Each structure stands twice: as C-alpha cells, then as structure tokens.
Simulated scan of single mutants.
Amino acid sequence: MMRQAGRSLPEYRALRTDVGMLESCFRPDLLAEITLQPVRRHDADAAILFSDIVVPLKAAGVGVDIVAGRGPVLDHPVRTLAEIAALPTVEPGQLDAVVEGIGGVLAELRDDQVLIGFAGAPFTLASYIVEGGPSKNHGITKALMYSEPATWHALMEKLTPTVITFLRAQLEAGIDALQLFDSWAGFLSLKDYREFVAPYSRRIFDAVRPYGVPMIHFGVNTTELLGEMAAVGPDIIGVDWKTPLDVAAARVTAHLTEVGLPAPRAIQGNLDPAVLLAGPEVIADQVGRICAEADAAIAAGDARGHIFNLGHGVLPETDPDAITRAFAEVHAR
C-alpha cells in the first residue's frame, strides 16, 4: 500500500526508537525487518523496499537528512551551475548496505510474494535539492526551470545517472519490480512536463528495461499528465485517488494510441488513504468500487491488469487493523 512500512505500525515505531530514518535505510538488518513487518502483519502479496527517494543522494555524500514532521532537508540548496557541477553522483559500491538489506528481505519472502524496489524521479529529487527541503508550491524550483533552462537541464543530467545506478543496484540484488516516483510532477503543466521532465524519466526506464521486470510510474495530482507519464516507458501507470481507474486507463490508452506507442498498459491504484479511517463498511464498499472500475478498464481493452494499491501513502493515524481488513477485502474478490 504505497508506503507499507512505517508510520501506522507500532512495531515499526518501536524498532525506529532512537534510530534516524536515513540511518535505518543504511542498516541492512533494519532495512530488511522494516520491509517485512507489514508483509507479515497484512499478508501482502508484495513487499515494498524500505527506503527513501533521497537515499542515493545520501549514499553519494550529499548533506541531507530527514527531519521528523518535515521531510528531507539539505544542508545547502543547489541552484547554480557551479553547485550542480559539485553535486556527487552515486557509485554502486556506496549502495552495498541497500543490496545486503534486499538479500535479507528476499530470504524471508514466500515463493508467492515479490519485492518492489523504487526510486525518486529526477524532477522530484530536483525539487528537494533546489528548494533545500519540502515545498508547498515548488516555486523556487519552477522559477529556476523557467528562468535558467540550461541550469535546470544540467541538474537533471546530473541526477539521472544517480537514479539509474540506484535502480540497477536494486535490480541486480533481485527485486521483482520497480516503481519510479515522481511525486511532485503534478505541479507542472503538460507542456512543462514534456520539455523539462519527460526526457529524463524516459532515459531511466530505457536504461532499466533490459532487466525485464515490471516497471511502475506514479505521481500525485497527475490526472492531466497520465498519458505523457505512460509514454515515457513504464509498464504500469499509478493513479492517485482523484481519478476513477477506468477513466484514467481510457485516457492513457487514447494518448498512447495517438502517439503510436503500444497500448494498453496495466494500472495501479487507487484507494483514498482516508477511506482506511472510515470503518469496515466503507472500506469494503470502496475496495469493491475500485476493483469494479479496474475490471471495467480491462474489459474495455484499456488495461492489461490491475495492481490494487492506495492512491497515496498510508496516513500515520491509520489503525493497522484497517489495512489488514482492506487487504482481506481485495483477496476475497
């Protein structure tokens, strides 16, 4: 369920006592245990690697930490060509702890369970790097993109190899599928996405496609971008909770057909995380609705399959039993 490990589980909070978020991402024993906790509790079909989009930046030596209640914060924002040139690119050997942790996860999963790895897409990483931390409107990032396009493209050129290296390390360690998160792409217009973002996401999918695992692409508030996000190369397009799955799938298929790319793709999503706070009857009703929308998309020839998921991350106040109930509802259908 997007961020399976984490904030809603008491066993996770106990394990993370006095251990920083990024520190736990680089301790193979904790990485494996935190990844597996929700799989055991909820009987999930897939584990989602416990990590963060800034892990490869941290591994490369970038001064970044995750501040409780705020998110990733950099020691110094990066906004000039000189600062971009000095930004390090991660090397495979700097990811050994992640690789070891993946081995620990795979050793414990059942044969009918898989491991999904992930990375942050260059635009979303760039937003944190330029802003220096989380932003409500990504104004500084977009201002740089508009006013200094050469500087923007230099930053994206610098970040793209780091994302590729991070995903390749996970793939060579044995992950079964991957997801590229462009969490903040929904703040862009279609024109800006095509010009400033799509070429780099496409390069990433092209680089990891030879590994032959399913590739997922997801962003929030991306209703207007779904077709373009599918066109950069994923096998599966993730949909947030604001767009019905059959509507989203039809939009993706129409766009891919128009530009001469293979269609349909599979879809992922898209339960509103708030539904998990609303009680058993609502959970059952909403799970049924989403499965029916996915079935309709498949029947119409607009989707090849469906991965049930949330439309964004689990809310921290969620009762873990509600997540288990939602899993059971999906498995019963």
Rank of each mutant, 00 (worst) to 15 (best):
R3M: 15
L9D: 05
P10D: 14
L15F: 06
G20D: 14
E23N: 03
P28E: 06
L31Q: 15
T35H: 04
Q37G: 08
P38S: 10
V39M: 03
H42S: 02
V55L: 07
L57Y: 01
A59S: 09
G61T: 00
A82V: 06
G93F: 11
V98A: 15
I102G: 12
G103C: 10
V105L: 06
E108P: 13
F123P: 10
T124K: 06
T124W: 06
Y128D: 02
V130M: 10
K136V: 01
K142F: 06
L159A: 08
F166V: 07
A173H: 08
F181G: 02
D182A: 10
K191N: 12
D192E: 13
Y193C: 00
Y193Q: 06
V197T: 07
S201G: 09
D206R: 13
D206V: 00
P210Q: 05
V213W: 03
I216C: 07
F218S: 04
E224C: 00
E228M: 00
E228T: 12
V232T: 13
V232P: 00
I237M: 14
W241P: 08
W241Y: 15
W241C: 08
K242C: 04
V247W: 10
T253F: 02
T253Q: 09
I267T: 04
N270Q: 13
V275D: 08
A284C: 01
Q286S: 06
G288W: 11
A292N: 11
A299N: 03
A303C: 09
V314R: 04
P316K: 12
R333F: 11
